[in-house]
Design a protein around this nucleic acid. Structure first.
Lengths: 428, 428
DNA sequence: CTGTTAGCGCGTTCAG
DNA sequence: CTGAACGCGCTAACAG
């Protein structure tokens, strides 16, 4: 049907092997024959057969990028950054031209696994998983197993925007703790979180952005021995070669709450993201942590001030704000799971005749492009999504040495803008 | 290295062919052997080798979705919709499970071609090209050739959100016209566009959404003879099997301008999208068309009221608005290339101390989710992006019969909201 | 219903 | 530097 290598070979009066060598370019070929072959390729409009090539070479140039919601700019920006790193490497080398494709899981664990299977079928060169992971024991285990197997078979795995995989051993431990009892869990969890946070902060500090010197890019990408032996960091699922670019959601959220507190707010509502998501958990934890440190008296009724939104979308914020207003009429500030949710909150407040920030302050998270243009401009926490994605891309290509411990945490930054201000008496 | 079909076969005590049959499921196999095979597959954690499978079967389950900017929700929504149609078909049949992957061209013609090559290498089952195309003679020709060749080799091609490919013959004709002379082109172009528009409107009316009855989904996807023989529509690049889901940008833009005109505006600025894009051109044409019909006296200074933005982004709107204000101090309304640009315009106006819509009305295009939440809520033109993407997906899968003439035009709808109002005297 | 036999198109040895 | 041969892992005819 289609024109094959052999066709080109006969047309050029050489053997198929020679054509192959010319096309892959990684082998000495006489200038004359080369041009002759190239001409034949042009004339015949020959295009390499990917599957055949992949089968023979046992390699693929596919790189998969899994996102939870492709219609959300949060993921779009990351995916775009990952892709921007592909197709720029020279010939050969670890950073050769690759085809980055983004796969939309829609936040479904099932589709996540499906895509992973597809990618595994294709013997993908790398897979980048972006955004918050689902905190479900069963799926978590299935995912971890699958990822480790993929990594073992040579596919590079990069986690971007979610915490590193839990070490295999620790998992059982946690499970036991969980099953201990169901009631009174909340109070205890609070305490456990506190401990975990301290551990993590320690780790973060250690893993702090160990960006390699520019020269490293040309290396083989193999981590130097020192990187894999760095003391306390060894818990972070390393050894399996899975590397992580994590976001400091907790720290950002903490600083955001501190900002509100320092403005004088004492009645602060919170609309969370979907349940069972690592990002949701981390951001809420950061918030609680700030309260605990600066205003522990507010902690007691924290649950009342927290509405669990169903999704990272506008309506979740809209409904959440309404619910919050019902529970706490004298609310002076609302924190959102992210910027999109924050916009929904703003809409609801406005519909209730409340002014922002005069009556109620609102803050988001992520600092997506539209946040700076909202009116009022939205106070939020900036995550360098593009940089993080680009780094994940380089890591996926093996063009950058993995960070010590396999985990790099990117810093987040408070962007105090027009939607937050000191509280004032409600006009009504 | 990895476990192969043969391994599974010996483990299950059957032949490789049987394992293959069990896995593909499109062939009768005894229940007992089936379970035995499945067990072996589980135990060995076998995963099909995609390239080998594709090579042998000469087919692939890859579907490529090309987008101009993955960070833009406009494309995210379309891509998401396309993907939602994959992986839902039953076994076998034309709608079998496919892997939709989105490729970000960044609006670069070069990367567009590169991705197309990659997809062609992989023998993709289908390719969906979304969003406005670049109006460049050279690239247009190269792209058309490439697309036709792909289609000829069995890859289904769907255009979504851009006009159908020009028929091959017409191309030379146009080229000759272009080269005729360079100066005074603008005036003439105006006239030519007018003619072209009338032709297109006619065609659009004919192609009007010929959605097949529900039963068609189970058919073979082969268009009935009547569809390919529908008289006047035959100019729209058919016969090559390339199908198009076009947006009625021109009509929407026209209605939007009419809306402004009927509100009483006579000083209407326009910030266009990037040059040489079909969408940019169509929307501007719709605008001019409305002026011509309802307020021809405004046409004379149309150029002065038009700023050519460099991109579909915020800063393009911001800068464009500033420039417009400089040229036309008594501006009462501004039309934007799309919603994102509109938000930039709003920001600029606000920074100049102008109120929306009291001092200046603003309108966008696309009706992206955030537009309804902007403040004031943004008047815009709604494009049913999700529906269009879903349809493109079904077309790509061959699960829906192609529209008559190969072109379906989706309707757009004016969404009159808070950002537009009758003009009033400027306060200053 | 199941096993056997051929390739699919290319990369990669090995000789020359 | 180039050609000839082999096999990557799987599917699709054919037999049985």
């Amino acid at each position: 049907m289609a024109v094959t290598l052999a066709d080109v070979a006969t047309r050029a009066g050489v053997s198929a092997a020679t054509v192959s060598r010319v096309l892959s370019g990684n082998y000495p070929v006489a200038g004359a024959t080369r041009t002759r072959v190239m001409r034949a390729v042009e004339e015949l409009q020959y295009v390499v057969n990917g599957p055949a090539s992949a089968l023979a070479a046992a390699t693929s140039d596919l790189v998969g990028v899994l996102v939870n919601d492709i219609a959300d700019p949060f993921f779009g920006i990351i995916a775009s950054a990952v892709q921007s790193e592909m197709g720029t490497g020279g010939e050969g080398g670890p950073g050769a031209r690759k085809l980055a494709v983004v796969c939309n899981t829609g936040g479904s664990t099932e589709r996540e696994l499906t895509y992973l299977t597809h990618l595994q079928r294709q013997r993908a060169a790398a897979v980048v998983l972006t955004g918050s992971g689902v905190e479900d024991e069963e799926h978590g285990a299935a995912l971890a197993t699958r990822l480790r197997r993929l990594a073992a078979s040579g596919t590079r795995i990069v986690l971007c925007g979610r915490p590193p995989l839990a070490p295999e051993a620790e998992k059982q431990e946690r499970e036991q703790q969980e099953q201990h009892e169901q009631s009174e869990r909340r109070a205890r969890q609070e305490r456990r979180q506190e401990q975990r946070q301290e551990h993590r902060q320690e780790r973060e500090r250690i893993a702090e952005d160990g960006r390699p010197s520019p020269g490293t890019g040309t290396g083989t990408g193999t981590a130097p021995a020192t990187a894999t032996g760095t003391g306390t960091a060894s818990a972070a699922g390393e050894g399996d070669g899975i590397v992580t670019v994590a976001f400091d959601n907790r720290g950002g959220s903490r600083r955001l709450t501190e900002h509100l507190l320092s403005l004088g707010h004492r009645s602060i509502g919170y609309v969370t993201g979907p349940a069972n998501r690592t990002t949701t958990r981390d951001r809420l934890e950061g918030h609680r942590q700030a309260l605990r440190a600066a205003a522990p008296e507010l902690l007691a009724q924290a649950e009342q001030f927290t509405v669990h939104g169903g999704a990272y979308d506008r309506s979740s914020g809209y409904d959440g704000a309404l619910e919050l207003l019902r529970r706490v009429p004298d609310l002076t500030a609302v924190l959102a799971a992210n910027d999109t949710v924050a916009l929904g909150i703003c809409a609801a407040l406005r519909d209730q005749g409340l002014r922002i920030p005069e009556d109620v302050s609102v803050a988001g998270f992520d600092d997506l492009p539209f946040s700076a243009d909202a009116s009022p401009t939205l106070t939020t926490v900036r995550i360098p999504l593009h940089d993080a994605g680009a780094r994940a891309g380089r890591l996926a290509l093996g063009r950058e040495a993995p960070p010590p411990g396999g985990v790099a945490t990117v810093r987040t930054e408070l962007m105090a803008r027009g939607s937050t201000a000191p509280p004032a008496g409600r006009r009504g």
